[in-house]
Design a protein around this nucleic acid. Structure first.
Length: 221
DNA sequence: CGTCGGATAATCT
DNA sequence: GATTATCCGACGA
């Protein structure tokens, strides 16, 4: 499913307008058999949508401030999903750019306008959390039916893909930022595409052992 | 260009 | 209490 999604269009229609992206980078997560999947340890409140019917959006909140969106890919009862990591904005570019202004740049001094240079078009949806920001995807869209043409958040084949074009070369490699199954090559992207995110291995944090002396622990004896 | 630390909170153990 | 499917800005080369 994952490489098949490359080149597909994800679009979100809101009161502000329409923003659409052509997918350029995705990652596959194989549910309960995949140590890197949120479903590896079974069904929970967060991953429940992954166990539902395919074609729906599994949106999760991470790092205290970001959302990422997946497409559920296996029949009901079986958890599996494809993370949408990046795309090229093909509609609603100015709206997407407005949504991508970092909150701490929206200071009163600058009148709500970032003093930083304009975000390059290639960076608008370059990364899973950026993609969600550009498309205004959040926990409200968790469970949304992406295949219903009525849905405001929908996934469709590209207009230029009717003849099964797929002229772009697809590259394969390990997934970004995962600790478990770090060598499993289930990341797929369009080779050479500038909207594909930069690969970064998971940050091996120094798990500093708790220093009991610093936390006022007193050992007597 | 590359590397690094901080932000920030739901979720799970 | 630890971990996290991330991003941004600062800093140095």
């Amino acid at each position: 499913m994952a490489p098949a999604l490359l080149g597909c269009i994800l679009e979100h229609e809101t009161a502000e307008g329409l923003v659409a992206v052509e997918l350029t980078e995705v990652e596959a997560y194989a549910g309960e058999i995949d140590p890197a999947s949120h479903a590896y340890r079974g069904k929970t409140g967060r991953n429940a949508v992954m166990y539902g019917p395919p074609g729906h959006a599994y949106v999760y909140f991470t790092y205290g401030m970001y959302f990422c969106v997946n497409v559920v890919c296996m029949p009901e009862g079986s958890a599996s999903a494809v993370l949408l990591r990046a795309g090229r904005v093909i509609a609603g570019e100015s709206l997407a750019r407005d949504r991508r202004i970092p909150r701490r740049s929206q200071t009163a001094a600058s009148g709500g306008t970032s003093i930083r240079s304009v975000i390059p078009a290639r960076d608008l949806a370059r990364g899973p959390a950026r993609l969600c920001q550009a498309l205004a995807i959040n926990r409200i869209q968790n469970g949304a039916d992406l295949c219903d043409p009525i849905s405001h958040l929908r996934l469709r084949r590209s207009d230029s893909d009717v003849g099964g074009d797929s002229s772009a070369e697809i590259a394969v490699g390990p997934r970004v930022g995962v600790t478990a199954a770090a060598d499993t090559a289930w990341r797929f992207w369009r080779a050479g595409d500038p909207t594909v995110s930069v690969y970064r291995p998971h940050k091996a944090r120094a798990t500093r052992p708790t220093n009991h002396a610093e936390t006022n622990q007193v050992w007597v004896g």
